[in-house]
Design a protein around this nucleic acid. Sequence first.
DNA 1: CCGCCGGTCAACCTTTTGATTGATCCGCCC
DNA 2: GGGCGGATCAATCAAAAGGTTGACCGGCGG
Lengths: 217, 217
Amino acid sequence: MGTLHILLVDDHPVVRAGLRAMLTGFEDFSVAAEAADGDAALRELTRLRALGERVDVVLMDLQMGAGMDGVAATAAIGKLDSAPPVLILTTYDTEADILAAVEAGASGYMLKDAPPEQIRQAVLSAAAGQTALAPKVAALLMSRISSPETALTPREVQLLELLATGLTNRAIARRLFISEATVKTHLVHIFGKLGVDNRTSAIALATQRRIIRAPGQ
Amino acid sequence: MGTLHILLVDDHPVVRAGLRAMLTGFEDFSVAAEAADGDAALRELTRLRALGERVDVVLMDLQMGAGMDGVAATAAIGKLDSAPPVLILTTYDTEADILAAVEAGASGYMLKDAPPEQIRQAVLSAAAGQTALAPKVAALLMSRISSPETALTPREVQLLELLATGLTNRAIARRLFISEATVKTHLVHIFGKLGVDNRTSAIALATQRRIIRAPGQ
DNA sequence: CCGCCGGTCAACCTTTTGATTGATCCGCCC
DNA sequence: GGGCGGATCAATCAAAAGGTTGACCGGCGG
């Protein structure tokens, strides 16, 4: 099927160089362009299209120091006509990260410590329109669907994330454009599912179970 | 002074590839070997020495998925006879990471998002026996020593640790055999020093600054 | 088409947390 | 030996968080 044209999006020059070296080492892989954040990624994508050049897969980091982050960029790319598949390649494997990426329309989720061959396979899968998940990620998703009664909804995970940053109920409400009453309702549900009865315990447990990242990480 | 021989230590193949590509792109830089964790780094170092090959600088990540971490490896390398300088190259710029690295004998601390030229200069400085700090890191250290009045007492740190496990004031009081009133007093002091006004923010900030371990870790 | 679930909101009440003030005790350093 | 800071405790008030009940809406699947 010819050469695969890849767009790299990562804020670390070192990581971009590494990915470029790794990918161009594979046959039929070619790095069409690179971007350091989500905004730049969109610009590159439209620029390449204007030139009539193909982009078969976008390889995207989630954490960006500045500018649009990976989730937002993934969602934005998905809105384009005949959008290329976006394969997430990141360091963290928490539920919150994974759920956000999947909701944004990512077609795969790989971890940076994966062996090169696994990454190569994931890129090929994504280009073929299939889903590619790191084994760890797949396991996590499986455990979620096998015990749905205790699984937190995406909204609840989102609440939990804001909770862990130290926001009050009122602040969370304002951030999400909902009422404080709704925040409390969500928290009661979260506490019930986690088996705790206050916010700090919820944060501790959620961090332990890798539902959310450690505060400030 | 001839070619600089560098030992790369990072658990991510992608990052190692990137660094190798970047470094070998510079004149007089050569990657002598690579290692995925601290144990492997020590093995590589002794192996190269047995072969009579030089290692002028060790480029070390702090976070390792498994095996000996960067701080331990740095300390271990420092114990060798005529040990090469260890330059830390990592993602995080938190107090505790930096202090731990410096205490372990690191001769520099750079961040992965630094431009290649800055990394090159840091490697050269380290090889010349000088200290190289990323601007961000230098700024953080300066701000810390200029404001010692915000330092937490050991007792306060202990409170903070229990706080992060999700205990209520009453539970903390029982755990420490003190009254709830005393717990409240401590918390007021902690909040004041950290510049926050509730326990979840205190946990988030303290975790961020690596004053305490992440909840449940 | 109806039921269920996720998300939203409100009222009400109890408990916990946070802020303030003021006090005692002890060890340490000048 | 007087001062200072850390740790301890108490009383009180205000604010935030937590628990309960009940309600409405929209989408999705049987």
